[in-house]
């Protein structure tokens, strides 16, 4: 009996710490992937491509994913991102999880209503609900339509593909080189500045979040209940925002003090090599193909 009780307690407290632990793990993984540029330093395919070329070609791929109305083309593009991830030595489960973790939440909510005939009229696939004495603005039957399902699938796949393309770009390019490439391509200065600041803000936010979790753990003696935990979470998110803001302001001052004027300067020169031209050619042919298929 005593044993059972302690098992149960262990189980419960583990479950209680689940939120904190998940957040802490996520923070650590993000810091390692993005801020320590873990994958951007691997000798992979995309890492070796000039950041300007990468930026332009990935923009083209994004536009194609937004433009095409064909499921097979989108599927192909998605598979292409998987292949590129493998060729760039990004662990595939990490990559896939990162992308699909958010899609059900955001895209799913938008796409779900669209599969029903109320939103998308069309050929019925199966009936969900028959309404008796329905008000006049609702049809008597609610069913999933072929057109609706197709549209929702396209939508979800489009989001997944676009997110994958963006994630690939960020994971395989060192941040300072990306900013520099934006500058070379005449992206407005103020935009680069804002991006740079956002990046540091997110970093400080994660950094502070981690220390708040640790600080709390070190001060917690015994178990706390859910209510306490919720109260603590709400209070600490407030202080987290304030603290991160204060620190990012300081970071900005520290950059200005060392001569930052909004223009990232980099030690490496950009020159195009054969590999870059090959990649450019590949993306060009792919685009022509996709547009040709789409226009037919």
């Amino acid at each position: 009996m005593a044993l059972c009780e302690s098992c149960r307690r262990g189980f419960l407290s583990r479950r209680h710490d689940f939120v904190a632990k998940t957040l802490a793990d996520l923070t650590e993984a993000m810091k390692r992937a993005i801020f320590a540029e873990r994958y951007a330093r691997e000798p992979g395919l995309l890492q070796a491509i000039d950041p300007r070329v990468k930026l332009v070609t990935f923009l083209v791929l994004l536009l194609l994913a937004a433009w095409t109305r064909r499921l097979d083309v989108l599927g192909g593009l998605y598979l292409l991102t998987l292949g590129l991830a493998i060729a760039s030595r990004i662990p595939i489960d990490f990559f896939v999880k990162r992308v699909w973790l958010f899609i059900p939440i955001f895209a799913g909510m938008v796409a779900l209503p669209a599969i029903f005939n109320v939103v998308t009229p069309g050929k019925p696939l199966f009936t969900v609900l028959t309404l008796v004495g329905a008000p006049c603005f609702l049809p008597a039957q609610i069913f999933v339509t072929e057109q609706g399902l197709y549209g929702a699938l396209i939508f979800i796949l489009r989001v997944a593909t676009s997110v994958s393309i963006a994630v690939l770009l960020v994971l395989t390019t060192r941040w300072t080189r990306l900013l520099k490439a934006l500058g070379v391509l005449r992206f407005p200065q103020i935009g680069i500045l804002v991006l740079g600041m956002t990046y540091r803000y997110i970093f400080l936010f994660l950094h502070n979040m981690e220390s708040i979790f640790l600080a709390r753990r070190s001060r917690t003696v015994g178990r706390s209940n859910w209510q306490e935990k919720e109260r603590w979470l709400a209070a600490s998110i407030g202080s987290l925002l304030g603290k991160s803001y204060h620190m990012s302001n300081e970071v900005y001052l520290a950059m200005v003090s060392r001569g930052w004027n909004g223009r990232p300067v980099l030690s490496d020169h950009f020159t195009l090599c054969r590999r870059d031209w090959a990649w450019l050619g590949f993306v060009f042919i792919l685009s022509v193909l996709i547009i040709w298929v789409g226009m037919r």
């Binding site: 540029e37 300081e250 970071v251």
Partner: peptide
Amino acid sequence: GLLFQNPDVQLFLP
């Protein structure tokens, strides 16, 4: 040149 009190704010590169 200024050395900040908190080194965390001075270090922001990879």
